[in-house]
């Protein structure tokens, strides 16, 4: 997605502001993460840990978004390269990125990000129209798009980010192919 598209989306988001707040006004608390200058959010409830760069064991033959495995206090955590998952290029080496550890389906995953920001409350700023304009990769990974002062924030759907590959769906797809 180009910068111009994002601006357009931001404007669209502002137009829609107030029309699509959470039905009961519920707020979503999210950790803000930065990847290549874009803002993303992860629900606070899913985050187990934020780690400084950690030694990774590279796994050959793994899907491209798997950056490797790491040992978090005796548990094996799969590191996912969000840059690859979201189709963004990266200047920072895998080994210098922060890990946001999330839990999904009883397993731990570390999402590799450039920077971790504050925890913010999301709600009124949701912009369905902006979500509709996301590209396919992002749309599948997004739970919602929020127009903030600093730009658009895409709230990531963690189970989608991990599950799109991990599910059994892939098996049948392969066989259908």
């Amino acid at each position: 997605m180009s910068d111009i598209e994002i601006r357009n989306a931001a404007e669209a988001g502002n137009d829609a502001a107030g029309l699509s707040a959470e039905p009961d006004g519920a707020q979503i608390d999210a950790v803000v993460i930065h990847i290549r200058g874009h803002l993303f959010g992860i629900r606070v409830g899913l985050v187990r840990d934020v780690l400084s760069p950690h030694p990774l064991t590279f796994v050959h033959r793994a899907p491209p978004e798997v950056a490797g495995l790491l040992n978090l206090r005796g548990r094996i955590v799969t590191a996912i390269n969000l840059h690859v998952r979201l189709g963004l290029s990266s200047e920072i080496s895998v080994h210098e990125r922060l890990h946001v550890v999330v839990e999904s389906g009883g397993e731990l995953y570390a999402l590799l990000v450039d920077r971790v920001g504050d925890v913010i409350s999301l709600g009124a700023e949701e912009s369905p129209r902006a979500k509709a304009q996301l590209n396919r990769d992002w749309e599948a990974a997004a739970e919602g798009v929020f127009a903030l002062e600093g730009g658009l924030l895409v709230l990531l759907d963690v189970s989608q980010i991990i599950g799109s590959r991990a599910g059994l769906g892939l098996v049948t797809e392969e066989h259908a192919a």
Partner: peptide
Amino acid sequence: VSPLLRQETVYSGNTI
């Protein structure tokens, strides 16, 4: 192994 790697038959598990 993590569900993400389960398709890969050369691995039977992982350990620390």
